[in-house]
Design a binder for these strands. Structure first.
Lengths: 342, 342
DNA sequence: GTTAGCACTCAATCAAGAGGAGTGCTAATA
DNA sequence: TATTAGCACTCCTCTTGATTGAGTGCTAAC
């Protein structure tokens, strides 16, 4: 168990390092207002804290730097939540100023503002389309041999896909098909659509229209392929500002990771609630060993969920980011649930 | 006018520098097979070429480097077109292997393969949605007070937008509205829709339904906002490989530029035909002073157009990129025009 | 007209030395 | 006994100067 003085010193060191990105020396700490003891005392305590694994040295005679364990302790025990100033709040509120209800628009704007306010990179996951339910199914013929299939979900999301019509397909055949599909698919979730299609609908369709399997196949691949939640980025190049990323290779690895949907998805932990913080190697991705990722989720309507992530160096301003994310998740949840009566 | 020998030497220098990214010395050149004269002779010629502005020195006793004027001369006069090898052709063909007709999918894949084959960054512009014509207009109510408006175009593109319904809006009112809109809007191009809406449709709608102006307004902003062609990227971080971009600031400026739609759009010159090459400061963007941009266009259907850009250092392998783009534009044009009978 | 030879320039690399920030330890102090 | 002043020591960083090597320009010979 750490003494009070050790806590104070650890906090001062982490705070200082977060601010200036330079190894922190005993003299530097002793000059702070809240610190009343001499550099020598501080050096003794620092040696102890290092032995306990909370601090590290970059070389024998350098100042101290927080270790991952140090950051972890800091966020777990020393992170007294802090309000954010009214200018920031105002800026967040500005997202909702124009009365547009368009989900996509709001999320995009949120991503930008979050990256601006934090000066880190933000990633927002849109609603999880998987679980939307089919509201209406329709087909619009474009020419004699092509048409567009359109699925509207209960949340107003629209999926569409072009496909080829069999030769000489008549308008009445088309109508029949649309009717069958609406009868069977309305109320089914997008993630279940392909099951339903293959298990039930295919057989029925085959009795009434030609080349039903081609069509069903096209529809199945369309809905299966396109079912991940959309990803929005803000401040992709913000990390260039951080001194720890003055190394081209690191930046490149992270930027490449962000181009890979599956990698980005795995940054999130949708099942945990509240705000999660992963520090350095606590992230599964090797590319992220110098980064911390702070994530949280927000609600869209009754049963949908989106997620937010902020990516920064391990020397991230945890206090501020956590506070901002907290405001953001609340505001987004509020905005997306009030005007909706599905 | 340059002598034959000067041409030969200029070409050798540019080729060598493109390959090795190092200032080229007279000895280096003299060792090439096609060069038969001594280093001293080459030095004399190089001094002349420098005086003419085709070459530059990085310092008094360094080898020579092509100037922008040198590159320009090279691409204009020394770029004997070169075939590309069959492995490359095969890889390009692989884009069209799966029989998917989905335009978006093909373009996305093309962007990736182009960046792989060139090891530069590729940008592809999708079809210009502006000029699509409305094929069908429909509205799907989601709840008592929200609905989705959907526009399908003659090319199978789908635009959609959520909007609020006035209280107690009846199904018959909705039907009437959809009918009016279909009567008036089918055949109108997306870029003209807002004119038509405000000039004609609004008045008619006002006679039949409540709060028509709200609705029309929502529709106008929706179609005006969303009307740029979609942009696809390949190999965004490829430039990290180039020694001239080992400078964080340069990379950052270019990456930032690529996040700004308007900036990206202005890289293209859709009115010129064939293949355009902009070298260094020939680009209007300040961020691009170390880059060359090679662009071309391809056709989608009868009247649609897409565009391709490759961004690399001024020391770009012009020969190869030009050859690849030529194949690409032809293949894309072919793929997008054969199976379509709009 | 071409080329060999030579003096010259300049970037890049390396070693040595000075300066400075910071530590750990010891002895003095409260 | 806990704290602190003092001092020797470590190691990074910056500067300086010397060395090396690639490459040039010029001149004189071929």
């Amino acid at each position: 168990m750490l003494t009070n003085r050790q806590l104070q010193i650890l906090q001062a060191i982490v705070d200082d390092f977060i601010m200036f990105a330079q190894p922190v020396g005993s003299r530097q700490i002793s000059k702070k207002q809240e610190i009343t003891f001499s550099p020598a005392t501080i050096r003794n305590e620092m040696a102890d804290l290092e032995e306990l694994g909370f601090l590290e040295k970059t070389h024998t005679s350098s100042g101290r730097v927080p270790s991952e364990k140090g950051y972890r302790f800091y966020v777990d025990h020393l992170l007294n939540p802090q309000g954010i100033n009214s200018r920031d709040i105002q800026q967040i509120q500005s997202i909702f100023n124009d009365r547009l209800v368009e989900v996509e628009h709001i999320i995009r704007k949120s991503a930008n503002i979050l990256s601006e306010l934090t000066s880190y990179t933000s990633i927002l996951l849109g609603p999880d389309v998987h679980r939307h339910l089919v509201k209406r199914f329709s087909i619009v013929p474009l020419s004699s041999d092509t048409a567009v299939a359109i699925i509207v979900t209960n949340n107003g999301h629209v999926e569409n896909r072009m496909f080829n019509l069999p030769p000489n397909f008549t308008a009445s055949e088309l109508e029949k098909m649309v009717n069958i599909l609406n009868d069977r698919l309305v109320g089914v979730s997008l993630e279940d659509i392909h099951i339903k299609l293959e298990a039930e609908v295919l057989a029925v369709l085959q009795q009434h229209v030609r080349s039903a399997d081609d069509f069903v196949h096209a529809l199945v691949t369309a809905t299966m392929h396109n079912s991940e939640s959309k990803i929005y980025y803000g401040g992709k190049t913000n990390m260039f500002n951080q001194p720890e990323f003055h190394d081209l290779n690191k930046v490149r690895m992270i930027l490449d990771l962000m181009e890979t949907t599956s990698q980005v998805q795995s940054l999130f932990h949708p099942n945990e609630s509240g705000i999660q913080i992963r520090i350095g190697s606590e992230n599964k991705q090797l590319e992220m060993e110098n980064c911390s990722v702070i994530t949280t989720t927000y609600s869209i309507g009754e049963d949908q969920q989106g997620a937010i992530a902020i990516i920064g160096p391990t020397r991230m301003d945890y206090k501020r980011v956590v506070a901002l994310l907290d405001v953001m998740r609340m505001d987004l949840t509020l905005a997306f649930t009030k005007n909706r009566s599905d």
